[in-house]
Amino acid sequence: MAKVKKKVKVIKIDTDKCNGCRSCEVICSAFHASDKYSIVNPARARIRLVREPLNDVYLPVYAGEYTGAECMGRDKYTVDGKEYEECAFCRASCPSRDVFKEPDSGLPLKCDMCEEDPPLDEPLCVKWCLSDALTYEEREEEVEEEEVLEEMDTGLKSLVDKYGLDNLVDSMARMLKKD
């Protein structure tokens, strides 16, 4: 397969520089409002600051993939003597907790790096982070060209993911027989 250049967007997080102000949450929620900037609501932000001042925990975490099923267990980190809350580092919108979900609908949220046309210089959480706990970098990577799936292929692939290929083939076979 052919190699192509891919732009990789990186938000670098220096937790030592975080002062806990949550401006990142403020501007994220405003930018992603359906009427842009019309509301502020950190509960809708795609970044959340795990913030426990007395424990010196200041951890900005970005919303990642939605997952339909929670993990089989939980994790709880202690780093440099500081205990972090359960699943603190996890980016998933997951059934086990209400983070990274729209507060009213429960729909999952995911960081999109403030994609915009024309593109912004940097995601807005980075722009609003005046303490430089968040900085932004872009780099190019060579990656193998992705196979672009047709619409039906995408649908089938998700069925395979959900039920397994064998079940899907069996089911197709039954449907063929009936016809």
């Binding site: 405003a30 842009k36 900037y37 019309s38 509960a43």
Partner: peptide
């Protein structure tokens, strides 16, 4: 977890 609304958002920003 509720919204605070802005009257003329672009001007605020």
């Amino acid at each position: 977890t509720k919204d605070v609304n802005l009257a003329r958002p672009m001007e605020v920003i």
